[in-house]
């Protein structure tokens, strides 16, 4: 699977109602650390069928950024059963991203 871009309209169905744990990457195109971290998210999406990886462009999706209290990016939030279970802010390696959903 690839990283799926999500927006305000499909966030509830794709993320909150997902039967798999979700890693949601809040990013922007101008954010260097976000671009630096993207390959790790691409790898997780390709390698792990038990985890769903989505991306939220905070410039396009201000309501979602506001709703989840994003004040620094990259910000990766883990969701399970519609609830936020963990989050990480700043450029982190792949294993730290995976640790958010239990490794």
């Amino acid at each position: 699977m690839n990283v799926m871009e999500v927006n305000f309209e499909n966030f509830d169905t794709e993320v909150l109602a997902s039967d798999k744990p979700v890693i949601a990457d809040f990013y922007a195109d101008w954010c260097g650390p976000c671009r630096m971290m993207r390959p790790a998210l691409d790898q997780i999406a390709a390698e792990r069928s038990d985890v769903k990886v989505v991306a939220v462009n905070v410039d396009d999706e201000e309501e979602l950024a506001e709703k989840y209290g994003i004040s620094s990016i990259p910000c990766v939030i883990a969701f399970k059963g519609g609830q936020e279970t963990d989050r990480s802010v700043g450029l982190v390696p792949k294993d730290r991203i995976l640790a958010l959903v239990g490794g």
């Binding site: 954010c31 650390p33 905070v58 950024a65 209290g69 994003i70 004040s71 620094s72 990016i73 910000c75 989050r87 802010v89 700043g90």
Partner: peptide
Amino acid sequence: LIGRGISYCATCDGAFF
């Protein structure tokens, strides 16, 4: 509170405020 209000980079995070 890093990423929840505390920041060390105004040009990175200013837009959220």
